[in-house]
Design a protein around this nucleic acid. Structure first.
Length: 283
DNA sequence: AAATCCGCCAACCGCAAGACT
DNA sequence: TAGTCTTGCGGTTGGCGGATT
């Protein structure tokens, strides 16, 4: 049974009253629903003294009438000191889109590569923002149509917007992220021979000012990446070309008009599709 | 000004895997 | 080895509050 009669301030602590606390107990005497300031304080103080883990005993020993699960969730998603609050930045949006394209709904895995962000937060972002776009396009979020919209329209648009705030120097240890027909892909520096079908990069792959750079974990392809939880990030260079968007559209049509390879973007998207997407997607 | 809609997000649930006895 | 407990994950719910009608 859910608790309906408590108030939670957006972005702030739960503010259930003492009376509500008593109402929100189940038959086992366990509290449910929003956390009170007192409960938060108790949990934070207990963990500061005894550390994380053993959540059931935390709940008992700290005198909280909460399940271990509830204590764990409250700590990880809200009380942890390194939880980052506030809007998802453009860079983070790009990273979410990119990582989701690789791993799907592996929210915790994605969160591991975004220090300070919780899986819950990323999941909420995906459901409220990304799925909304899919709905507007009247297509399934897992459909090829929508995945292509993300690759060829949304992500380039985000990348263009992120550029002015990203004028930092090149990092030779970084990983270049190129925009491919098949979506964004990372390549370790020096692996340029392995980038067939690069689509929107500028001529050459040099680390010049025409690139966009993203802060993403330097070894984000590693499945076990506990070392990334801190601040082990490096600069990824994103080959932007001089005009990734809207000239990307031009390239699409140039390729199509030029009668290039059969798998050109033009074969995937005709002019009506592009126009439709531009109208539908609100960036 | 009131009613309704809708985005956001905290917190719940069920399930699965791993740890422990 | 089997049973139980704990932890972690992904999916879902529903209240709050701002925007719109």
């Amino acid at each position: 049974m859910r608790v309906m009669d408590t108030k939670v301030k957006k972005g702030g602590s739960a503010t259930a009253t003492q009376g509500q606390v008593q109402q929100n107990e189940n038959e086992m005497g366990m509290r449910k629903g929003p956390w009170t300031v007192d409960e938060d304080t108790i949990l934070v103080n207990y963990i500061a003294t005894n550390g994380e883990g053993h959540w059931n005993s935390v709940a008992r020993s700290a005198g909280l009438r909460r399940s271990g699960k509830s204590c764990r969730l409250r700590w990880l998603n809200y009380l942890r000191p390194d939880v980052r609050r506030g809007n998802i930045t453009l860079q983070e949006q790009i990273l979410i889109l990119e990582l989701h394209s690789r791993w799907g709904n592996r929210w915790s895995k994605i969160a591991q590569h975004m220090p300070g962000r919780t899986d819950n937060e990323i999941k909420n972002y995906w459901r409220t923002r990304v799925m909304k776009q899919a709905k507007q396009l009247n297509c399934d979020v897992n459909s090829k149509q929508f995945r292509d919209a993300l690759r060829y329209v949304w992500m380039p648009r985000l990348l263009e917007r992120v550029q002015p705030a990203s004028q930092v120097g090149p990092d030779p240890s970084g990983v270049r992220v190129f925009f491919y027909k098949n979506g964004l892909q990372s390549l370790e520096s020096g692996a340029e021979g392995e980038k067939p079908n690069r689509y929107c990069s500028s001529s050459g792959a040099s680390s010049d000012s025409s690139s966009v750079e993203l802060q993403v974990p330097s070894n984000s392809d590693h499945s076990d990446s506990s070392e990334l939880l801190g601040h082990d990030v490096s600069v990824h260079r994103l080959e932007k070309g001089s005009d990734i968007w809207p000239s990307m559209n031009n390239q699409m049509f140039e390729q199509g008009n030029g009668g290039g390879g059969g798998d050109s973007l033009e074969s995937l998207w005709n002019e009506e599709n592009i126009w439709f997407l531009q109208q539908q997607l609100n960036f």
